[in-house]
Simulated scan of single mutants.
Amino acid sequence: MKQRSILRLGVTVLVLAGSAQLASAMPGSLPPVQHSGAVSYLSGGVGSDRSAAIKDEMRHYPLALEFAGKTDAGNDYLADIPVQISDVNGNVLLDTNSRGPFMLISLPNGRYTVTVTYKGKQAHRAVNVTAGSHAHEVFVWPM
């Protein structure tokens, strides 16, 4: 009888420990959503688990930005990229830095200019955001 109680207790502890580890891993996979006026966004993706979580989340955002540096060995993900998004009238709606190689952004429907900078080199892209669409812009700089 005593042996069964010890065995049940051991199994219960293992199950609870596994559940707690799984629960703590799930919410930490995605960075928190940030807000700037009517714009909401998240940025991150450092590490394979977080990168995979953001890639899975991309379909829920009308605009996805990705940042990389081209090397002789291939591409390396970049972080801390200044990002500015302006509307057609030149009003800046978002001015922030990426916290990883991915940035997912929700914007009202419209046409926007995305400006990003790496090592003093700016890149600009015009993007259209419409209901049901998804734009994915990849910025690659020479290293």
Rank of each mutant, 00 (worst) to 15 (best):
N109H: 07
F102T: 09
A68S: 15
K70N: 11
T71G: 01
G37N: 04
R59N: 08
K121C: 04
G44A: 11
P31S: 12
V83M: 03
P32M: 11
L107M: 08
D76T: 14
L65D: 12
P31T: 14
K119Y: 12
D80A: 15
L42W: 00
Y77F: 12
N109C: 01
R59M: 00
E66M: 13
K55T: 07
D87T: 05
G45L: 05
Y77Q: 08
N109W: 07
D56F: 02
S51W: 04
Y118H: 07
Y41P: 05
G28V: 10
P27Y: 09
G44P: 06
I54G: 02
Y41I: 06
A123F: 04
L65A: 07
G28L: 13
P27V: 06
P32L: 05
S48Y: 00
V114E: 00
G110T: 13
V88R: 07
A52L: 06
A123L: 02
P101K: 11
P82V: 01
R59F: 05
A68D: 14
G110H: 02
I105C: 10
P32T: 12
A64T: 15
I81E: 13
E66K: 00
R59W: 05
P82T: 08
V83T: 13
R50K: 03
E66Q: 03
D49V: 15
G44T: 00
S98R: 01
L30V: 05
A38M: 04
A52D: 12
G69W: 04
R99L: 15
G37A: 01
T117L: 04
K70M: 13
G37E: 00
D95V: 14
Y112F: 13
L63P: 02
G28D: 10
K55S: 10
V88A: 03
K119R: 15
M103R: 09
S48N: 05
N89D: 15
M26D: 04
V33K: 02
Y61W: 15
V92K: 12
A123D: 01
V39L: 00
G110L: 13
V116Q: 06
